[in-house]
Design a binder for these strands. Structure first.
Lengths: 342, 342
DNA sequence: TTGAAAGCGGTACCAG
DNA sequence: CTGGTACCGCTTTCAA
C-alpha cells in the first residue's frame, strides 16, 4: 500500500461517487433516485442512472433515515411469537409491512413487563416509525416512552376492547367466545361449560370471559368452573389436568386459546378421557395447529391477516384518531365439540 | 407563540440541548454517554448526567449508526416463521441477539427465491451488521448483495453441511436422522422405513436423507419409499395420504420435520390407521408441538437455543473464518415409534 | 480535561 | 433544470 493511500480500505459507493461519475451534483442524484422533489432533464437522469448502474450504487437507508426523520421501520412486540397464533399474526404483520415498504423489528416479552418496557424503549431509541404491541402490560410507561421526542404512533393489537386514547385492533372476542360456548350449550346440550383462560387476561376487559358468561346468562344456565393458567400448551395441559381431576368433572370446556387447547387435549389423552365424548372442547384462535390436532378443534377464528393489515395500515398512517378496529370471529366447527363435520 | 419562534414544533431533545443545559460541549456529552473515548472530570460528568435526566434525553440510534457505521441490527431471513421449529429458532435468535445488544429485522420468504433476494437486498440497504439466513436458495446473489459496500457477514443457519466460504450452523442431521431410523429398524423391528422429506431439500446435501440411507445400509436393509412434499403440516398431510394409500403401505416412516409429521399423524387419523401400531413414525426437530400431539413424536432434537446463540455470536463477531458449527441431535423417544416411554 | 470542527450519507431549499 | 450548501444527530480527532 503506497504511503499516501487513504486509510479507508473499502467503503461503499456513495451518491458522491455517482455524482462525480455522472458529472452532476449530489442533489441531482438525489432527485433521480427519489424521482423528486425537483424535475431532472431526461438526458441528465439517464447519465445518472447509468452511473448508478455501473457503480452498483445503493442508497444508504440509515443516512436517509437521519435526513428525513423516518426509518420506514416498525416495531412489533409480542408476548410469545412461539404461540402458533402469534406466529401467524406476526407473519401477516411482517408481510403487510413489507408491502408498504416497512421493515419490522420484532421483540418478545415472554409476558414479562420489565422486558416489555426495555423492548419498547430500545425500539423507540431506534427511531421506529410506529409500534405494534400485543398484550400490553405497562401501557402507561409505553405511552410515555413513545411520546418523548418525536411521538411515535402505537397501536395495540390483540386488544379485546378499546383503550382510551389508543387505536386498537382486535377480534370481537366476546361474540366469538359466546358463539363457541353457545354451540356447546345448545347444539350439544351441555348443562354448562367450564372455562380455561389465560392468567394474564384481565377479567374486566377480556372479551372471552364476558362471552362465556354471556352465553350462560342468555341460556339461563349456571356458570361452569374456571381455571386460570398461562397462555401456552403447557399451561393448558396443567389446567386440563386440574379440571379433569375434579370430582365434578365438566363435560365441556371453552379454552381461551388454541395453544392452551392443545394442552388440554393432551391432558385428556393422558388421563384417558375421550374428546369429545367425555369432554367437549371449544377453543379460540383457529391457528393452523387447530386443524391438525386430534381431534381437530372447534374454535372461533381470529382473522389474522385482516387484523394484521389493519394494524399496519393504522400505525403507518399514524396520524389518525384513536379508534377500535373490531373483527368478527366466525365459528369454525370441527370435531372437538362433538360435531361430525369435516 | 412569539413571532421569532422556530417553526419546528416539537422535536426530540438532542445532545445539543443537553450540552447547552450542562454548559459543556457536545463532545463531552458524547464522552459521558459512551463512557469514552476521552475521560471526563467527575463533576462535569455529573452535570451532564443531571442534564440528561432532566431533559429525558435519549440518544438517537440512527444518527449514531450513521456516524459509527454500525446499526447494531442483524437481519434474519427464514422461509416460514410459522413453522413451529423456525418459530422457536427465531425466538431464540432474537433472544440471543438482544442479549448482545442487537435488534433483529425478520423477513419471511415463503420459500420463494425472488422474495428471498428482495428481502436480503432490503436488509443490506438498511445497513444491517450481519445476516442470518435459513434455507438459502440463491446463495450466489446473496453473496453478491452482502458484499457490495461494507461487506456484511452472513451466516447460514439451518444448514446441514458446510458451504464453501461461509460459516454455517446446523444440526448433525445425518446422525440425527440415522438415529431415529435405526431406532425404528432395530428396536421396533421394521424391515425398512419410508421417508417423507421436504421438496426443497437438496438430496445431495440434505443430511436427513443421507442418515436415512445410512441407517438402512448399515443394517443391510432395502430402502423404503420416499415422498417429497412441502415443509408444512399440509404438505405432510398430503404426503401421508399418498403414502398410506399405497398398496405396499409402509409400517414405519421417518418424516423430515415435526410440522410435516403432524400432518402425517392427521392423515393417519383420517384414514383410520393407528399410530404407532399400524404406522410407526419418527420425526425431526423436537419443536414444542411434538410433545403435545397425539401420539407424541419420537424425534431427533435440534438444539435451537444453542444453535441460535452460536449463530448470533458468529455473525456478530463477523470477522471469523468460515467454519461449520455442528450440533448433535439427541434422539428423544416418545410414543409415535411404538415405545411406551413417557 | 474540554471544545471546535470535520465527517457519516442523504435531502431539499434557495439561487442561478 | 441544476448546483451549492445547510442541515439531520452523533462520533472522534486534534488542538488548546
Amino acid at each position: 500500500m503506497a504511503a499516501g493511500d487513504p486509510v479507508r480500505v473499502r467503503t461503499a459507493v456513495t451518491r458522491n461517487d455517482v455524482a462525480r461519475l455522472a458529472g452532476v451534483s449530489t442533489a441531482v442524484v438525489s432527485y433521480v433516485v427519489n424521482d423528486g422533489p425537483r424535475p431532472v432533464a431526461e438526458a441528465t437522469a439517464a447519465r445518472v442512472r447509468d452511473a448508478i448502474e455501473r457503480l452498483g450504487y445503493r442508497p444508504n437507508t440509515t443516512a436517509r433515515a437521519l435526513a428525513v426523520g423516518s426509518t420506514t421501520t416498525i416495531g412489533l412486540v409480542v408476548p410469545d411469537s412461539t404461540n402458533p397464533f402469534f406466529a401467524e399474526y406476526a407473519w401477516q404483520i411482517q408481510r403487510a409491512a413489507t408491502d408498504l415498504g416497512y421493515a419490522v423489528l420484532i421483540s418478545n416479552t415472554g409476558f414479562d413487563p420489565g422486558v416489555e418496557e426495555r423492548s419498547v424503549r430500545d425500539l423507540c431509541d431506534r427511531q421506529i416509525d410506529g409500534l405494534l404491541i400485543a398484550g400490553v402490560s405497562g401501557l402507561r410507561q409505553i405511552d410515555e416512552l413513545s411520546r418523548q421526542g418525536r411521538r411515535i404512533p402505537v397501536v395495540l393489537i390483540d386488544e379485546a376492547s378499546s383503550r382510551r386514547g389508543h387505536t386498537t385492533v382486535g377480534p370481537d372476542a366476546a361474540t366469538g367466545a359466546e358463539r363457541v360456548v353457545a354451540h356447546l350449550l345448545h347444539v350439544h346440550g351441555h348443562a354448562s361449560v367450564a372455562m380455561i383462560i389465560g392468567d394474564s387476561a384481565d377479567p374486566a376487559t377480556d372479551g372471552r370471559e364476558r362471552g362465556w358468561i354471556g352465553a350462560h346468562a342468555r341460556a339461563g344456565r349456571r356458570l361452569g368452573v374456571v381455571e386460570r393458567t398461562p397462555f401456552s400448551r403447557q399451561g393448558g395441559f396443567e389446567a386440563g389436568l386440574r379440571l379433569l381431576g375434579r370430582a365434578d368433572r365438566p363435560t365441556a370446556v371453552f379454552v381461551s386459546s388454541d395453544s392452551q387447547a392443545i394442552g388440554v387435549l393432551h391432558a385428556a389423552r393422558e388421563l384417558g378421557v375421550a374428546v369429545p365424548d367425555e369432554l367437549a372442547v371449544g377453543s379460540f384462535d383457529d391457528s393452523e395447529e387447530s386443524r391438525f390436532c386430534s381431534p381437530p378443534l372447534t374454535t372461533a377464528r381470529q382473522p389474522a391477516r385482516a387484523m394484521a393489515e389493519a394494524a399496519v395500515a393504522a400505525v403507518v398512517h399514524g396520524g389518525t384518531t384513536p379508534e377500535h378496529l373490531v373483527f368478527d370471529m366466525p365459528l369454525v366447527v370441527r370435531r372437538s365439540c362433538g360435531c361430525r363435520t369435516e
